[in-house]
């Protein structure tokens, strides 16, 4: 495998990369994340969600495409823009939304919040608020896969901003040295908070593994099928005992860094251009329509189903009581 290969946005995945039904599922999975995040934004606006809330809107194709290439037993870890990853790993919308509202029915009983949720059952290891930690923590989860010989791999997600943290390179070094089964995934949404990549990163991010012998590719992260194709290839390489790999997905968040970001560091035209012409959900929908197998009714039905799940989660997240006061003192130690 070449160590570094940039891919242009014009690259399309072969039509057999997924069956029409699988593609329809990706559409549904992405739509669920989109609608869930919109609802979260609404609940935030109503004061029902507090603190920081980082929405994944626009980036859906990355996690849905990567997840489609994984198998049961693999593990996932990410930073704080994490609601999409939770839903993609199969965590319940109710549990995630109730955590956002800080309620008893949340995944962390309301004690973690937006940035801190976990599900051992679904292989999801957070949800971390410190930028860059997912490099070593993900390599550590991969270390456990290798130690136990369970055949699993870890997907360690982080952003373009985190790619500048030193600990990422400490993790690269050991992961390569010990051939750990870890896929480093850079979700490059072009901005580390309000600082554009051109102002925060020298050189190309996907090439930063070269000195360690870690192959890297830059992939269009706005097309779920292209993401899937790249992830399938990377996962096969990693499962083959070759050590880590880096996939940099070029993606875009439509919303601010967090809810309280006025977004003055980029133009409205730039955001509009991505929304109108590169939206991952619109893109797969066009592909699905072109198969001739699905009609407007199919999409309406899915929209209805997704809306029902999201509305139920919002209802649950408001009805679930706040954690009991006694919970202040629990779960500090085992």
């Amino acid at each position: 495998m070449n160590t570094s290969k940039a891919k242009l946005e014009t690259v399309k995945a072969p039509s057999n990369i997924a069956s029409p039904d699988e593609m329809l599922q990706y559409y549904k999975d992405m739509l669920l994340i989109r609608r869930f995040e919109e609802k979260a934004g609404q609940l935030y606006g109503m004061g029902l969600i507090g603190g920081f809330c980082h929405l994944y809107i626009g980036q859906e194709a990355v996690v849905v495409g990567v997840q489609s290439a994984l198998k049961k037993g693999d593990t996932v870890i990410t930073a704080y823009r994490d609601h999409g990853h939770m839903l993609a790993t199969g965590m319940s919308a109710n549990g995630v939304m109730a955590e956002l509202t800080g309620r008893k029915g949340g995944y962390s009983k309301g004690k973690g919040g937006s940035m801190h949720m976990f599900s051992r059952e679904k292989g999801f290891y957070g949800g971390h608020g410190i930028v860059g930690v997912t490099g070593p923590l993900g390599a550590g989860l991969a270390f456990a896969h290798k130690y136990r010989g369970d055949g699993g791999i870890n997907c360690a997600y982080y952003g373009d901003g985190a790619a500048n943290q030193g600990q990422i390179y400490e993790a690269y070094n050991m992961a390569a040295l010990w051939k750990l089964p870890v896929l480093f995934i850079i979700e490059n949404n072009k901005y580390g908070m309000g600082t554009s990549q051109t102002r925060h990163a020298a050189g190309e991010l996907y090439k930063r593994g070269e000195a360690y012998g870690i192959p890297g590719e830059k992939i269009n992260g706005m097309d779920v099928l292209v993401v899937r194709q790249a992830a399938l290839k990377a996962v096969e390489y990693i499962r083959g005992g070759n050590g880590p790999m880096i996939l940099e997905f070029s993606t875009y968040r439509y919303r601010g860094h967090s809810m309280s970001d006025p977004g003055k560091y980029r133009t409205k035209e730039e955001v509009e251009e991505m929304r109108e012409h590169h939206d991952p959900i619109d893109t797969i929908r066009t592909v699905l329509t072109d198969t001739g197998k699905f009609t407007e009714d199919n999409f309406k039905q899915i929209e209805k189903e997704v809306k029902a799940v999201v509305n139920e989660s919002a209802e649950f997240a408001q009805q679930s009581p706040e954690p009991d006061a006694s919970e202040l003192w629990t779960d500090v130690m085992l």
Binding site: T75, Y125, P136, G138, G140, F143, A144, A171
Partner: peptide, 12 residues
């Protein structure tokens, strides 16, 4: 780096 790798392994 290795404190993080060990911590990740302990999460598992």
């Amino acid at each position: 780096g290795f404190a993080g790798i060990a911590t990740g392994a302990a999460f598992a």
